[in-house]
Design a protein around this nucleic acid. Structure first.
Lengths: 133, 133
DNA sequence: TTGGGTGCAAATGATTTGCAACATC
DNA sequence: GATGTTGCAAATCATTTGCACCCAA
């Protein structure tokens, strides 16, 4: 059936994504690559991100208008705490959440329950001296 | 400044949304209304849903490609367990989740943390006799 | 050689918006 | 009568796709 090929474009995209280490949109990544002299097309960026996603190499995050991608640290199930200002991201595991989800599903008599959970906040650096609530 | 007006369209949209009591897209709602002989325009449906959302009258849910709206039962903070087949929805409160989120935020030194959480599964009716995992 | 990849431009599809005609307060 | 509303069509915008050419295996 054919496997995925190791092209220069794919390498460049994966590499840049790791360097950035924060969530970026396909368009941002494309612009960023273009600034470095890359001639990779926008469609290729979209297609490659989709492939990397399928392979579990990246995480996705959905904002109001677009999808953001980030090179994935852990391949295990996890969630994100993202700074709404600088994009700094902390990966968080939530065993309690998984347990809670299972319990809720059982009580409501639902099966095959999946969940999506994202945390959005302001990191200490971006918050300056302000203290939390 | 001006307040929102109580037009026939708005009433029809809010009414139908309550009757449906499950998550529907703006387009589905528009089609549904059209089948009942309504001549309400699609743009009006979109605009009205946005208004209802601002007023806290409806909840939104984001799927891969579109936004789904549902008339809101409780005005308090809550999450949803939605059947991926029939759309039946159970509102669930998650005090444990809120506590967990606060703790995670504190540990990572983030402030003003918000979260989004949705549960998606198959309800007993749609699952037929199949038993869960 | 051979099918996956790529670039480009055109196509999608959900949502938004400009504008003139309306309707509510 | 003033101003929020509506309908329609045109405009957005992120993302997808058709296609001919290219290249890794």
């Amino acid at each position: 059936m054919g496997r995925t090929r190791n092209t220069a474009q794919r390498q460049a995209i994966a590499k840049r994504l790791e360097e950035l280490s924060s969530f970026v949109s396909a368009q941002q990544l494309h612009d960023d690559l273009a600034k470095s002299g890359s001639k990779i097309g926008l469609a290729t960026v979209y297609r490659t991100l989709q492939v990397l996603l399928d392979e579990g190499e990246v995480d996705v995050l959905r904002t109001d208008s677009e999808l953001l991608y980030r090179s994935c640290d852990s391949t295990e199930h996890h969630h994100h705490l993202v700074c709404r200002i600088c994009g700094r991201t902390v990966e968080v595991a939530g065993p309690q959440i998984e347990a809670w989800a299972r319990q809720v599903a059982a009580e409501a008599d639902f099966i095959d329950v999946e969940h999506t959970l994202e945390l959005m906040g302001t990191c200490s650096t971006c918050a300056g001296g302000r203290k939390g609530v």
